[in-house]
Amino acid sequence: MSRHKITMTVNDVEVTREIESRNLLVHFIREDLSLTGTPIGCDTTSCGACTVLVNGRAIKSCTMFAVQANGATIETIEGVAQNGDLHPLQQGFWEKHGLQCGYCTPGMIMSAKHLLAENPNPSEEEIRWGISGNLCRCTGYNKIVEAIRYAADKLAEGDGEGTEETSA
């Protein structure tokens, strides 16, 4: 078993830790960095609850080793609001009731953030396909779709914080 010293930028903060090679990125984020906003929902890369952005791309952090993220830029749900201002996606989820128990919400928001970065004006169909790697058991998805559409409109208006993908 090898141990590795890794350095990465997480939510604009550079962190360095020594870890076991087998440490999953999600455990590293939750345990080593105490960023518990990224939860775990399954073992089979199915649910997307643990979604974070690695170098701007939404990935399931349960299916990547922390050591693989050495040198990467990572954004978790804790880094989405900037200077105390909610990101349009966060506003959208709140306004449109895009969450209930809140457990899938961070993953949904991170997925949606990547989706909107690639496709700023998605149709309902594109939103549904875009979040199809994230399971929600509470909402029935209607209001999540509305929340993401709300954010797309806000971002298009240009008064949102998230128009620039700083982590890309």
Partner: peptide, 10 residues
């Protein structure tokens, strides 16, 4: 919840 500050058992 939208800011990752929920407090679940884990």
């Amino acid at each position: 919840f939208i800011q990752g500050k929920g407090n679940y058992v884990d």
